[in-house]
C-alpha cells in the first residue's frame, strides 16, 4: 500500500532560514540568474547586431583627385542602385565624414587648404546577407571603377561576434558549473541530514517504513528549503540584472541597447528557480535512496 507519513515534516527537524541550505541555494540561484541573464543579453545583442549588418557593405572610392572621386562615386551609386539584389544605397555626405574625422585630424585636417583627401563612402544594404559569392559579383560589377574598394561590415565585426559567442559559451558553462555545485551542495546536505537523523530513519525503517516514504520526507524538506532559497535567489539575481541593465542603458550605445530582454528571456530567468527546486528534490531523492539501499 502506498502511504504517506502525515507527520513527515516533523520527523526530520528543520533548520529552515536559520540553517545554511536555503541561503546556499539562494546564492547559487542568484549567480545562475545573473549568468543566464548575461548570456541572454549577449545573445540578443549579437543577434541584433548581426541582423543590422549582415547585408551591409561599404564601398570606398579611394581617389585623391576630388573631381575624379566625385564622378566615380556617382557612377558607383548609379550602378548599385540599378541592381536587383541591392535594397538601399546611401552616399555618406562629406559633412558627416568630416564630423567623424575631425576629432582625430582637427579642423585644418578635414577642411583647410592642406586637408587630407578623404575617400568617398557609400553605404550599401543588400537584400539578404553578404556572402563571398555576392561580394565577388559586386566586385566585378564595379570593375569599371578602378578606385572602388568593397568591405563587408560583417567581416570586420566577425571578431566581435566571435568574442560575444565565447562569452555566451562561458555563461553557459558557468550555469552548468553552478548547477553541478548546487547538486553537490544538496547532496552534502542530504547526506548530513541522513547522518543527523540516522536513528529516526532506522526506527521508521524497522516500523515498516519504505524507502520511498523516507525519501519523500527528505524530498519535502529539501524541496521547501530550495523553494525558499530559489525565490530569494531569483529576487537577488533579478535585482542585479535590473541594476546592471540600467547602468548599461545609461551608456547610450546602440549596440548595448540591443541586449534588452523579451518575454521569452524573462520566462527563462523565472524558470531557473523552478529548475533548481526540481534538481534539488531529485538529488535529495537519489541520495537518500542510495543511502537507504545500503541498510537492510
Amino acid at each position: 500500500m502506498k502511504s504517506r507519513l502525515a507527520s513527515g515534516d516533523r520527523l526530520v527537524p528543520q533548520a529552515r532560514l536559520g540553517g545554511p541550505m536555503p541561503w546556499v541555494i539562494a546564492i547559487m540561484i542568484a549567480l545562475t540568474v545573473i549568468a543566464a541573464g548575461a548570456g541572454l543579453a549577449l545573445r540578443n545583442l549579437a543577434e541584433n547586431a548581426r541582423n543590422e549588418i549582415e547585408g551591409g557593405l561599404t564601398v570606398q572610392i579611394v581617389e585623391g583627385a576630388p573631381a575624379a572621386r566625385e564622378s566615380q562615386a556617382e557612377i558607383a551609386v548609379a550602378l548599385l542602385t540599378n541592381r536587383d539584389d541591392v535594397a538601399e544605397v546611401r552616399r555618406v555626405p562629406e559633412q558627416e565624414l568630416d564630423a567623424l574625422l575631425e576629432p582625430w585630424l582637427g579642423q585644418e585636417g578635414v577642411a583647410g587648404p592642406d586637408a587630407l583627401p578623404i575617400p568617398a563612402l557609400i553605404d550599401v544594404q543588400l537584400k539578404g546577407p553578404v556572402t563571398e559569392q555576392r561580394l565577388a559579383e559586386l566586385q566585378s560589377a564595379l570593375a569599371a571603377i578602378p578606385s572602388a574598394r568593397l568591405d563587408a561590415q560583417a567581416r570586420w565585426l566577425q571578431p566581435v561576434f566571435d568574442a560575444v559567442a565565447s562569452l555566451q559559451w562561458m555563461a553557459f558553462g558557468l550555469i552548468l558549473l553552478l548547477a553541478a555545485t548546487s547538486a553537490a551542495a544538496v547532496w552534502l546536505a542530504a547526506r548530513s541530514a541522513l547522518g543527523a537523523n540516522h536513528e529516526t530513519i532506522e526506527i521508521i525503517h524497522l516500523l515498516g517504513g519504505t524507502d520511498a516514504q523516507i525519501a519523500r520526507i527528505f524530498q519535502r524538506s529539501i524541496g521547501l528549503d530550495a523553494a525558499i532559497g530559489g525565490l530569494t535567489g531569483l529576487l537577488l539575481g533579478l535585482g542585479a540584472i535590473l541594476l546592471l541593465g540600467r547602468q548599461f542603458a545609461g551608456l547610450g550605445s546602440g549596440m548595448v541597447a540591443g541586449g534588452e530582454f523579451g518575454m521569452a528571456d524573462w520566462a527563462i530567468l523565472a524558470a531557473i528557480p523552478v529548475t533548481g527546486i526540481l534538481l534539488a528534490t531529485f538529488t535529495a531523492r537519489v541520495t537518500v535512496l542510495a543511502a537507504l539501499r545500503r541498510i537492510l
Binding site: 500500500m1 502506498k2 502511504s3 504517506r4 507519513l5 502525515a6 507527520s7 516533523r10 526506527i203 521508521i204 516500523l207 515498516g208 517504513g209 516514504q213
Partner: peptide, 12 residues
C-alpha cells in the same frame, strides 16, 4: 502521541 501513532501513519 506522535511516537505511538508512528506505526499507524507508516501503514497509511
Amino acid at each position: 502521541f506522535d511516537n505511538v501513532a508512528l506505526p499507524l501513519r507508516v501503514s497509511g
